[in-house]
Design a protein around this nucleic acid. Structure first.
Lengths: 159, 159
DNA sequence: GGTGAAAGCACCGAGTT
DNA sequence: AACTCGGTGCTTTCACC
């Protein structure tokens, strides 16, 4: 892949869109004192370069009755089973993300559930996967997301 | 907060927008055989109800040189220090999310870094926070995100 | 709560500098 | 690479169901 360099204008466009993907390009143009056409071209280039990979809604799952978050560490009988188990894990919709990790666990995943009873079912499902030796669960009592803007600003400072 | 019930139409709107927040409302209207005005009103209501909390770009951090992900478990000297330490942790931009947890760790966070050297710096920063007794790091070798649509479909089936 | 039409804007490509 | 400009299409509102 061709190396793609973002300049200050790109940074500011991302900075605005990361908080609201539907911000009109004309608004961005006004703020940055450039033309809307330029904003359009810049965004398209970042999409083509694969830096912007898409856009997504932020949903409040708590309001939908899914307030329970836990992390589950998975121990495997053999690490050679990693791929197989990972595939099985990804079939469970309530597992939102899974990682192959070094350290204590072989696989490490995050689950989103209605309540403890529901979480129990999900964890039992994980435990039941062939090759899983045992699991260890950490229940989230409080989640605090860091602002995406802060990370971006720090990244931009170094680019 | 007033209880808000989503119907089948709301589900389908979310289903489309969750993968592309810039899908024109006219396209959604055509697909669902309703008017664009209705799509507009539905989305607005879900925003007002706090179910849609915003929209965000998906960025490929790997392409920006930030390919390193790790989870760090934090042990505290006393749990009464949780709030203070959590605040300090959230000041580090490379910590993308932090949880207060039951189980092995007191606090559990995810970091995004350039490389191992950079990660080391971040972990040292975490270790340096007053009240932190020690930390334990799990490095992600492979991340696999589950499709948000799958989770939503499962949630909708039960609502 | 939904529709359809109309007014106001935004998008986005072509042509220019 | 950025600008202007114009055709096309999108959003948003509103009177009416």
């Amino acid at each position: 892949m061709a190396k793609f360099r973002l300049d200050e204008v790109d940074h500011q466009i991302l900075d605005i869109l990361i908080d609201n993907t539907r911000t009109p390009f004309t608004d961005i143009a006004k703020k940055l004192q450039i033309s809307a056409g330029t904003v359009h071209v810049r965004v398209k280039k970042m999409e083509e370069a694969g830096i912007i990979t898409g856009s997504s809604l932020s949903i409040d799952y708590k309001k939908l009755g899914y307030a329970f978050i836990a992390y589950v560490g998975v121990f495997l009988q053999k690490t050679s089973q990693t791929k197989f188990v990972l595939e099985r894990i990804n079939e469970i919709p309530f597992v939102t993300v899974a990682h192959v990790t070094t350290g204590k666990f072989n696989i490490f995943c995050k689950i989103r559930a209605k309540d403890t009873e529901h979480a129990k079912q999900i964890i039992f499902e994980l435990d039941d996967i062939e090759g899983v030796y045992r699991t260890e669960t950490m229940i989230s009592l409080e989640e605090s997301l860091n602002d995406k803007k802060r990370l971006m600003h720090s990244i931009f400072k170094e680019l």
